[in-house]
Amino acid sequence: MKHILLSGSTGFVGQNLIQYFQETTLGTIQPLNLREPLAGNLPSADAVIHLAGKAHDTGNTSKPQEYFDINYGLTKELFDRFLDSNIQDFIYFSSVKAVADTVEGKLTEESNPQPKTAYGQSKLKAEEYLLSKELPEGKRLFILRPCMIHGPGNKGNLNLLYKVVKFGIPYPLGAFHNRRSFLSIENLLFILNRILTNQSIPGGVYNLADDEALSTIEVIRIIAEASKTKAKIWTLSSDLITKLAKVGDKIHLPLNSERLKKLTESYEVSNEKIKAALAIIALPVNVREGLTITIKSFSNS
C-alpha cells in the first residue's frame, strides 16, 4: 500500500488519479494545497506526485512571469522539501512543450530543448533545477513529459471536435495533413502504477504518449464512429483557413491561430524509452480505443 502526496488534485489528471486509487488497492492519496505556503516538513509518504501548475493559455492573456512563479517557483519549493524528507520518489509532470512547440520527425528524450513559449520555458527551467540537484541515496526522480492527455471528463480540442462532428458541422481543415500523438488517461495511470510499485525502474526523463500517432482527419472519423454520426470533411484552401484564424485572433472566435496550430500541425512523440523502462512492448490501451472511450464519455455527459 502506497501513500502519495498529490499536488494538483482538483485537475483532470488529479481527479482521475484519486478515483484510480479509490478503485484499486494501490494505496491512499493525500492532497497538497500549494496555493498556501508550505509550512514545516512534508507529511510522511512514499512518493510525491507534482501535477499542479499553470497550464498553457491558448488565449495568450497570461503574463509570462505567472508561468515562472508557478511552474518553476512552486516546483523548486516542493522539490527542496522532498530532498529534506524521507520520501523516496518525486514524480514531476512536465510537458513535451518543455522541449519543442513544433516537431519534425519524432520527439525523443534526446531532442535539444528549445521551447518558444513562457509555458514551455517555465517547465524546462523547473526540469533543469530538479536535474541539477544531487539525489540522496535511495531516492528517485521522474520527470514525465506527456503529450495531450485525454479521457472521460476531459475538455479542450477533442471536445470541440466532438461538437463539430456531432452537430453535423463540416470539418473545414481537410487540406491539412498531419500526425499527432495522444495519451489516454488509462495508459497514464498504468505507467504511474508501474513506477510506484516497481523500485527497479530507474528515474529519469520520460516522454509519455500512446503507441501510435493519428492525423486529425483520422480523429474526426473516430469521433463520427463513436458518436454514430457521419463525418463531413471539407478541403478548403489552407490559405483561406489561415486568414480566418487570424480574424479569430482579433475577435475571439473558436478558431484562432493557436487552435488551428493544435488541430493541424504534426507533433509525434516517441514513447520507446518509457516502454523499455517498464519492460513492455506496447501500452495496454491503443490510441483508437482510448479516443473512443473519451468520445463516448462526451455522448454520455
Rank of each mutant, 00 (worst) to 15 (best):
M1F: 13
Q199P: 08
L131A: 06
T24N: 15
E265G: 05
H252I: 06
S9R: 00
L124A: 01
I149P: 01
S95W: 10
D239V: 14
R221Q: 11
F21M: 00
E218F: 15
Y72D: 02
R35D: 15
R140D: 06
R194V: 06
K262N: 11
A47R: 05
Y162P: 04
K230I: 02
N193P: 06
L107F: 13
D101V: 06
R35L: 11
L255Y: 03
Y206I: 09
N41H: 12
I70M: 09
T294G: 09
I201E: 05
V164S: 00
A47G: 11
I223R: 12
I223S: 13
N86D: 12
Q88C: 01
N60S: 12
Y20T: 11
D249N: 12
Y162I: 01
L32C: 05
Q19L: 12
K246M: 04
N300P: 02
I4P: 04
K273Y: 14
L196T: 07
A245P: 00
G27S: 05
G248L: 09
N207F: 07
A279Q: 15
L183S: 13
F167M: 08
L130P: 04
I295V: 05
I201T: 03
D69I: 03
H252Y: 11
K116W: 08
T197H: 05
A277N: 03
E66G: 13
E127W: 08
R35A: 13
G156P: 11
R180T: 07
F21H: 01
I70V: 13
S215P: 00
N41Y: 07
S85E: 09
A100I: 12
G248N: 11
G290W: 03
T197N: 08
F298M: 01
G203T: 06
F93H: 01
G40D: 07
F21L: 01
I233D: 02
G73E: 13
S227Y: 07
Q199M: 05
P43D: 07
L83I: 07
A52W: 06
K139C: 09
